[in-house]
Amino acid sequence: MMQARNFPIGDPILEVRNISLSFGGVKAITNTSFNVLRHEIRAIIGPNGAGKSSLLNCINGIYKPQEGTITLKNEVLDKISPNIVARKGISRTFQNLALFKRMSVLDNVLVGRQLHMSANFLQVAFQTPQARREERENRERCEEIVEFLEIAHIRDTPVGRLPYGLQKKVELGRALATEAEILLLDEPMAGMNVEEKREMCRFILKVNDEFGTTMVLIEHDMGVVMDISDNVVVLDYGKVIGDGPPDEVRSDQAVIDAYLGVAHD
């Protein structure tokens, strides 16, 4: 991270302002604000139930916060559905894997290209030259992505049959295929072994470096968070208790008390 970056960190691209979300009487997020800067890797950490995933779901449009605004590139995302948010350039992965289980790896990644395909069903049905060209070009693009993620050898396997670690990669591939400006990664490394985690980190850093994609990721492994993130937001009981570069957050007393704890040595 020391050398100059291809895409230096810029202005805020995503601004979360005073978001509150509750389910009936349960408050998931209370008055939360933070900014995500262009081209940065932003980690969201916090204990289980702190509201991290709910926060991503708000940004993504799956949940609609009762209060507050989310602003993407100076445009307020107000009461809109996930498919419109996707159109505006935010893609994501899910905590418990939300893959299309009966479809092949390549088809899963191809669904991520949907926003780049404009042929309607009649053009597809009659296989017009435009539909065929579009299909071919997007297929090539997806082949590149599966090559990049080193999952080309399983491209035709239905994802439901793959082991967990590979499914995680497919999901990342699908999110990458959208070429979104912002990727929301909900625990991309959960359930992985050290080696798989290292590989996943490599992919995330490489994507960030090569395409300048802004990343917002939820992660529990503090080692990973400290290694790859530029800034960290700490949530506890739906509130922001820390926000800043990893080193700063790590030494913050409130964060240590709530989440990190003290080493026993």
């Binding site: 159109r87 893609s91 893959l99 926003l115």
Partner: peptide, 12 residues
């Protein structure tokens, strides 16, 4: 069919 919420998040 397979996962509607993910489909929606991909812009469908």
């Amino acid at each position: 069919r397979d996962m509607d919420i993910a489909a929606e998040s991909m812009g469908i």
